[in-house]
Amino acid sequence: MDLLGIALAIFGAAMAAGWAGAGSAIGVGIAGESGAGVMTEDPGKFGLVLLLQALPGTQGIYGLLIAFFAILKVGLLGGGAEVTVNVWQGLAIFFACLPIAVGGYYSAIAQGKTSAASIQMIAKRPEETGKAVILPAMVETYAVLSLLMSIILLNGIKL
C-alpha cells in the first residue's frame, strides 16, 4: 500500500511538470511565431521580442518547482529521510499538484496569445513597450495564484 501512496505523489508531480511545461511550450511557441514574423521586417527588435516571448515560459518553471516540492516531500530526491506515504497522503499530494498543472497549462497558452498580440503591438509602436509587457503579465497572475495554492497545499500536508 505504501508504494501506491508514493506512486500517487509521483503522478501529481508528473502532472504538474508535464502539463505546465506543455502549456508553456505552446505559449512560447505562439509568441515565437509572431516574433519571427515581426523580425523579418525589423531584426533590430530581437531583444524586445525575446523578452515578450519568454513571458509564457514561467508556467513551465512553476510546474517543475511544484514537481520538485512533491517528490522532495516523499523523499524521492537524494538526502531526504525515508518517509512512509499512505494512500490518502499520496492522493492529497496528487490533488495539491493540480492547481499548477491545470492553471499553468491554460494560462500559459492564453499568455502566449497575449504575448503574440503584444509583439505585434511593439512592431507598430515600439514606444509602448511598457504597456505591451504588462498585458501578458496580467494573464500570468493566475498562474502565480495557482502556484501559490499548490505551495500552500503541499506545505499543509502532514506526513
Binding site: 518547482l65 537524494g78 497572475t141 502565480v144 502556484l147 505551495i151
Partner: peptide, 26 residues
C-alpha cells in the same frame, strides 16, 4: 490578494536555487 505574488515569486526564486544546488550536489 494580488500581492500574494510577492510570496510566490520570492519562493519560486529560492526554490529554483535550491533545486539547482541539489542537482549539482547529486
Amino acid at each position: 490578494l494580488s500581492y500574494s505574488r510577492l510570496l510566490a515569486l520570492g519562493l519560486a526564486t529560492s526554490a529554483v536555487g535550491v533545486i539547482i544546488n541539489m542537482l549539482a550536489g547529486l
